[in-house]
Design a protein around this nucleic acid. Structure first.
Lengths: 120, 120
DNA sequence: TCAATAATTCAAGAATCATTGAGATGATTG
DNA sequence: CAATCATCTCAATGATTCTTGAATTATTGA
């Protein structure tokens, strides 16, 4: 993740409809959702508006799309989201891990590490 | 972190000068930096422009300020940054931790968990 | 092939945001 | 107290972004 991509990602996330779309797709997982279903779920927006926002998100790398019949299925690009997180927190510690542990804890509360045993 | 705050945070981060300021302050740690020093470090911007962006960031909760003599010292609000991360990744796992491990790994590369630390 | 469905593209207008420069505020020094 | 330094506030202007509605492309089934 470089500055340019991080800016594009943040800009994409800074709009209500798009933020909702990303969060919806994060919870939807690898199966994704069709453009139409997303539109209904987030705010019943017009299809052209939805298309505008979905393509903005895809441009920013935060979602990916594939065609399935008449529908186009969108999925969250978790790798890019992770890259953004890493970029934002880079060098936050400077040898003092306790400084950024809140961020670790925040993520741990959702994502249990698969290896190791320590976290509850 | 609720949607409104997350939107404000992302909007604040979606501007080049502001993104640089936040990253600079993240690495600067709890001591922070004066407005003038930040301005010189990020792009030699005019003081009114710097002030505009710093106050935008403070409004969004991403930085905090305190006066020290003639200067005003800004620090990164790591708690809010962590909250944003947690908000973005919330429910990403749905029982499948391997889905969001990239995000964990991204943070771990910066922030080693301290031994035996229970998260809050 | 034709009609229906799903989604996209485009142009125009409305709304929001960033920069500039001038002036104001608050703290320190002589 | 007056001068200076660091920063902030404000109004005007230019730039960017969002929404809307109509037209367009791709896919499917009768």
């Amino acid at each position: 993740m470089d500055e340019k991509r991080a800016l594009a990602a943040c800009a994409a996330l800074s709009q209500e409809t798009r933020l909702r779309i990303v969060r919806l797709l994060v919870t939807a997982g690898p199966e994704g959702m069709s453009a139409g279903a997303i539109g209904e779920a987030v705010d019943g927006a017009s299809s052209s508006r939805m298309s505008f926002h979905l393509s903005h998100l895809e441009q920013a790398g935060l979602v990916e799309s594939r065609r399935a019949g008449r529908s186009i299925i969108y999925t969250a690009a978790l790798g890019v989201l992770s890259g953004l997180i890493e970029f934002l927190m880079r060098d936050c510690c400077q040898g003092h891990p306790e400084v950024c542990n809140p961020a670790m804890a925040a993520l741990s509360s959702c994502c249990e590490p698969t290896k190791g045993t320590a976290h509850v």
